[in-house]
Amino acid sequence: MKRYLVILLLLITGCAPWVKVGGLYKSPPHNFSVELPNGWMRLNTGDRLYITRDGVLLQNIIIERLNIEKPLEHTKKKFSKDMLPQEVAEVVLDNISSDQTVLNFEVKENIPARISGFPGFKVVFTYKNKDGLWLKSILYGFIGDEWFYGIRYTAARRYYFDKDLRTFEKVFESFRLIKTA
């Protein structure tokens, strides 16, 4: 029994290694590089990179790369290469707002933005999670080649959001694609 428990723990920790970060982070398989804040923790899961300092429930930055053909989690809508940034933002927002654990969803801002030289969008929205915690998010996104890239900051609306906003802006400003078509 103990042997299985040890194997299980090894598997769990092997699959989810949170590591301390700081400085330049390059991910050639995901085709991006970014400057990560010192002292934060990082977790890589498939298409996503998570970083947090106080815990993902309080604040997190997610950088994700999704193939535009890949189905989204909450809507059947799909990305396509010829979409305007505004249309890409619509799909992203529909995907988020169709998740019914995202309550009282409200878009505060939806504007064009340039991300690593690509035309994209910036959306700011607030919502309440299923435990009643109010959260605020900023999400930058764009389509480059066959991929959707998203850089999202989410934090508890009170206190935490403002506290780490500047850190997120630095992360966002440092985001670069390694290769562009």
Partner: peptide, 10 residues
């Protein structure tokens, strides 16, 4: 699954 089915979580 996702989407409006997540209502069950609530």
């Amino acid at each position: 699954g996702g989407g409006y089915g997540d209502l069950a979580v609530l």
